[in-house]
């Protein structure tokens, strides 16, 4: 009788563990993707709403141009309702700085731009959020806080998940020189062009984020002089974390949002 109870308990335990593992795989492959896609869509929708409302908000009460007086602070207030730790005071204190171009002017955890990479599919678009924390990367791509702002001189560096959470950088190895990476902050379209095949390196190779990227493998150094660069990072192999894949781009063209989408997206 006792033996029977032991065998039965063991069997039930094995079945339970098996079911748990299956559920966890479902969670990773399916559920995180669903959650991330909906979070990304929410962020992008919020950005578009903000961008659509921004100039109107800024123009009405003050007398100045939306860019200088009204734009930035009102933008900050728009988003405080989301419960994010606020940098409103910081943004408000520097009303003269053009939105998105002040170093460190992005609010931590908030989205400030949308990235398009046609190589990953015509419909591929992801929000770019400030900082590369775990919570942030669940919603979209993360901008390395210490790297340059979008479109500025230096290196605009962005990290994204290869797998799980919507698989944003699943096709990362397919990036090729000449591929456009288009980023918009609502004011301007920035078109970066990938300059080399993805470079595989170790997680400790932080030189790839330098203003002039300086990877450990000097043969892979993409640029020899300062400029406006883009760095994308993700993990390699697909389901592992032993290495990183790095892609570099150079800012090729900018155009005002009012001029419509850049050619790279309408091709």
């Amino acid at each position: 009788m006792a033996l029977r109870a032991v065998v039965r308990s063991l069997s039930e335990l094995c079945i339970t563990v098996g079911v748990l593992i299956v559920l966890f795989v479902v969670y990773l492959l399916y559920w995180t993707g669903l959650r991330a896609d909906s979070a990304s869509d929410d962020e992008i929708a919020r950005l578009h709403k903000q961008w659509a409302a921004g100039p109107v908000d800024g123009g009405a009460p003050g007398g100045g141009t939306p860019e200088e007086t009204g734009g930035s602070p009102s933008r900050g207030q728009d988003t405080t309702g989301d419960g994010q730790a606020g940098g409103t005071a910081e943004r408000g204190a520097a009303p003269g700085t053009a939105r998105g171009t002040a170093p460190g002017g992005y609010r931590s955890g908030n989205s400030f731009a949308v990235m398009y990479i046609p190589r990953f599919g015509g419909g591929w678009s992801k929000p770019v959020l400030e900082n590369t924390g775990k919570q942030t990367l669940r919603k979209g791509l993360g901008h390395y806080t210490r790297s340059a702002p979008l479109g500025a001189k230096g290196n605009f560096a962005v990290a994204g998940h290869r797998r799980t959470y919507g698989d944003p950088f699943k096709d990362f190895p397919r990036l090729r020189p000449g591929d456009p990476v288009v980023v918009t902050d609502g004011d301007t379209w920035y078109t970066y062009t990938i300059v080399a095949r993805p470079y595989r390196t170790l997680p400790s190779d932080t030189g790839v984020l330098d203003a002039v990227p300086a990877p450990v493998d000097e043969a892979a150094t993409p640029f020899d002089r300062p400029g406006r660069y883009l760095t994308l990072t993700t993990c390699d192999p697909e389901w592992g974390s032993s290495h990183r894949l790095i892609a570099w781009g150079r800012l090729d063209a900018t155009q005002s949002a009012s001029e419509g989408k850049p050619d790279a997206l309408t091709r």
């Binding site: 990367l137 990290a159 990072t233 993990c235």
Partner: peptide
């Protein structure tokens, strides 16, 4: 492991 996508030497 598949959460580590940044280069920070924190492996």
């Amino acid at each position: 492991p598949f959460n580590d996508v940044t280069v920070d030497g924190a492996a």
